[in-house]
Design a protein around this nucleic acid. Sequence first.
DNA 1: ACGAGGTCCTGCGAGC
DNA 2: TGCTCGCAGGACCTCG
Length: 277
Amino acid sequence: MPELPEVETIVRELRPALVGHTLLHPRLHATDVLRGVSAARLLATLRANRIVEVSRRAKHVVMQFASGHRMIIQPRMTGVLIVYARRRLPEERRYVVLEASLGHGRTFVFQDVRRLGTVWLLDEAGWRSYTARFGPEPLADDFDFARFEACLRGTRQATKKVLMDQRRLAGVGNIYANEALFRARVDPSRPTDRLDRAARRRLYRAVLDVLVEAVEHRGTTVRDYRTGTGERGEHQEALDVYGRGGEPCARCGTRLATTHVIDGRATTFCFRCQGEP
DNA sequence: ACGAGGTCCTGCGAGC
DNA sequence: TGCTCGCAGGACCTCG
């Protein structure tokens, strides 16, 4: 389930393969993923354009074209973006949403088993309003503690829900919210207005550390996620709590608990360690 | 402003 | 063995 570290990994691997190239013979195999653009207009724009940059915003891949258009791909749950440098195996040809040749036997593919992912085509004005919907990027150089505190202010919602609210903070999803809260020893259900300064500090540090480590491990592969070259990430080996309900806490040995009461999503935490204000 | 719940979508594992 | 059911969950929506 691509969150910030997974999309960052995809982008870093796609960038050298895509920048300076044009997507040749683009083919779209599903139109229900399109948002605000017709298949004809998307394909015509791709054919006429060279890719000048590939970047990430929140959990989305952003391909910028010479014309100023941007194609945004949101992988959501099961989307993968891969540049294949070889012939694809039959199972690698399944669930293809968008594919295009890059020449020299290379193929760019967006595949999505569940087709919850979306594809947007935006002009400059569209991009400005699109990117304005999201909160700050936690790995940006200027994302300091004061900015993080601003993300938490003005709400009484559970801290975990606030961390995952893309309008407040970009890129954190269920896996990294669970991990950061555990590392910071913060109760996921505690309202953000009841976190003291020390807890906010620990959480700031934990969010950044967890994201940086996950990027270094090229993301977390639980099931579907693959890097931009089709490989599995390695951060699943380093998870403390996500997917480990019932196992002993790495810090104190207490059995980790899993609940669905926060925002309906699986929340795994340690009753004993994560009770500090 | 808030929470609850629905929607999209398919694979997979549990349970009978 | 084969079936049904619920869950995985990000982003959006409506309703009360």
